[in-house]
C-alpha cells in the first residue's frame, strides 16, 4: 500500500479538521449499529423462547445486540484516532456512476434472464457493465458485450448444457 497523502474528496480524513471523528470509522460503526438494530428489532417479531427451547428470535436478537454494541464502540473510538489501515489506504473518490452501472447490469440480469432468455439479457448486462470501464465508449462496449455474450453462450449452453433458454418466453422463444 502506498502512503500518498489523502486526495481531495478522500474520506479517509477527519471530519471538521483535526479534532473531528475519523469518518470511515464513524461510518463503519454507524452501519453496524443500524444493521445490528435492524436484526435485533426484526428478530423480536419472532418467538424468543427459553434457554431450553430457544425460539427463532433468540439468536438474532442476541447477535443483533452484540453488533450494535460493537458498532457503538467503533463510533466512540472514531473520535479518538484513525484506523491506520484506512488512513494510509490509497483511495480515489467513490465511483458512483460506475458502481451504478455495474449494479444496474447485475439487477437487469436477475430481472430479465427468465423472461428474455440468456442471450438478450446477457447482451444488455455485459454492455452496461462494459460501459463502467474508464474510457470505454458505447461502440467499444457493444463489441465487448457481443463477444462476451457469444463466449458465455458457448461455455454455458453448448459445453455445460445448462438448462437456460437462449431466448425467453417474452420473446416467444
Amino acid at each position: 500500500m502506498s502512503t500518498t497523502p489523502a486526495a481531495p474528496g478522500d474520506h479517509a480524513g477527519r471530519l471538521g479538521g483535526r479534532s473531528g471523528p475519523s469518518l470511515p470509522d464513524l461510518m463503519a460503526g454507524a452501519t453496524f449499529v443500524v444493521l445490528g438494530l435492524a436484526f435485533a428489532i426484526g428478530g423480536s417479531q419472532y418467538d424468543v423462547g427459553t434457554a431450553l427451547r430457544m425460539g427463532s428470535g433468540y439468536v438474532p436478537i442476541a447477535l443483533g445486540g452484540i453488533l450494535t454494541v460493537l458498532g457503538l464502540v467503533i463510533v466512540v473510538a472514531s473520535f479518538r484516532g484513525v484506523d491506520p489501515t484506512v488512513a494510509n489506504a490509497d483511495r480515489g473518490p467513490i465511483p458512483w456512476q460506475r458502481m451504478g452501472l455495474l449494479v444496474g447490469a447485475i439487477l437487469f440480469f436477475g430481472f430479465t434472464v427468465g423472461g428474455l432468455g440468456l442471450g438478450p439479457s446477457l447482451l444488455v448486462t455485459t454492455f452496461l457493465a462494459a460501459l463502467a470501464g474508464h474510457g470505454t465508449r458505447p461502440g467499444r462496449a457493444l463489441v465487448i458485450a457481443i463477444g462476451l455474450t457469444a463466449l458465455c453462450l458457448v461455455v454455458f449452453v453448448s459445453l455445460l448444457q445448462l438448462r437456460l433458454p437462449i431466448l425467453g418466453d417474452w420473446l416467444g422463444g
Binding site: 447485475i106 462494459a130 463502467a132 470501464g133 470505454t136 467499444r140 465487448i144 458485450a145 463477444g147 462476451l148
Partner: peptide, 8 residues
C-alpha cells in the same frame, strides 16, 4: 476493461 465485464 474486458476482464471485469467478463467476471460480471
Amino acid at each position: 476493461s474486458v476482464l471485469f465485464p467478463a467476471i460480471i
